[in-house]
């Protein structure tokens, strides 16, 4: 009971704070659109990174990747606010409260996932505008998959945050972990055809399976399926599921022992 109360308070706080931060909301909508237009148009016209059947273009390929990118950034950023909470003292208020520490970590993971889901939903709204049709069933599937991805990534962010002393370290994390995760996920170029060493890195990147799962839903039954998708949906979901479980356990654990 106390645990549920703890989860709820931590979650609710994140949501309230999110809706008060106008610049963050604007950035959240603006950034992916910017990526999609600039990179999508630029890369498509010069490089032709993917061979696609008629009726599909590079934007279609990149769009699921951009959704994942947004979810990645939003989730990690939400989780890393723990570092601020530590610096501003609020974390102490939570740590001496009579709620189990795991409920705090879980509440944080759910809070970050919820915000990521809001982000993802906004992005899904533009799908018809770039020519991708979505059935209601596909939308539900996408939501569930995106929730799993967000949850895993926020938990991943919590693991990082509980080892970070100050916000200064965040730049390093961003440059050496988060950005590579994005670039290696197959979001902007496909896994097929890259050098072997890079393919290994891409297969190790958990986000690869997230991007692939979303493409699985988007392009199921279309002529582009073969060129868009690398793994089966079952494979993708297994990796994402395992990732979610492992990361939340590690997050809870490291949260408990971070001083």
């Amino acid at each position: 009971m106390r645990a549920i109360q703890g989860i709820y308070v931590i979650w609710l706080r994140d949501i309230i704070r999110f809706f008060r931060e106008k610049p963050r909301i604007i950035g959240m909508i603006g950034q992916p659109l910017l990526y999609l237009t600039i990179m999508g148009t630029g890369l498509a016209s010069t490089l032709r990174p993917v061979q696609l059947p008629a009726g599909f273009d590079y934007i279609d390929f990149m769009y699921p990747g951009i959704i994942c990118m947004s979810v990645l950034f939003t989730s990690v950023f939400s989780a890393v606010s723990i570092v601020w909470d530590r610096e501003f003292g609020f974390l102490k208020e939570v740590l001496v409260a009579p709620v189990p520490r795991w409920s705090v970590a879980l509440g944080k993971a759910l809070g970050g996932s919820t915000i990521s889901m809001i982000q993802a939903t906004i992005l899904l709204v533009i799908a018809p505008f770039i020519g991708l049709k979505l059935t209601f069933l596909a939308l539900i599937k996408l939501w569930l998959i995106l929730f799993l991805i967000s949850f895993a990534l926020t938990s991943f962010g919590i693991i990082i945050a509980s080892r970070m002393e100050t916000m200064q370290g965040f730049q390093v994390i961003m440059n050496f972990i988060i950005m590579p995760m994005f670039f290696l996920s197959g979001a902007i170029f496909p896994l097929k055809g890259v050098p072997g060493w890079m393919e290994i890195l891409m297969r190790l990147d958990p986000l690869t399976y997230g991007v692939d799962a979303i493409r699985n839903i988007f392009f199921a039954g279309t002529p582009a399926y073969e060129s868009m998708v690398t793994f089966s949906l079952t494979q993708d979901l297994t990796v994402i599921g395992v990732m979610g479980v492992v990361f939340i356990i590690l997050a809870t654990w490291s949260f408990n022992y971070a001083k």
Binding site: M1, R2, Q5, G6, Y8, V9, L12, R13, I16, R17, R20, D85, F88, G89, F90, L91, K92, E93, V94, A97, P98, V99
Partner: peptide, 22 residues
């Protein structure tokens, strides 16, 4: 040192505390 959440209102700070303490 202060441990309030400055981005919440005074009331939210108090209510969240009350909820954490059941």
């Amino acid at each position: 040192e202060t441990t309030l959440d400055e981005r919440l209102t005074a009331k939210e700070n108090l209510v969240f505390h009350a909820m954490l303490y059941g």
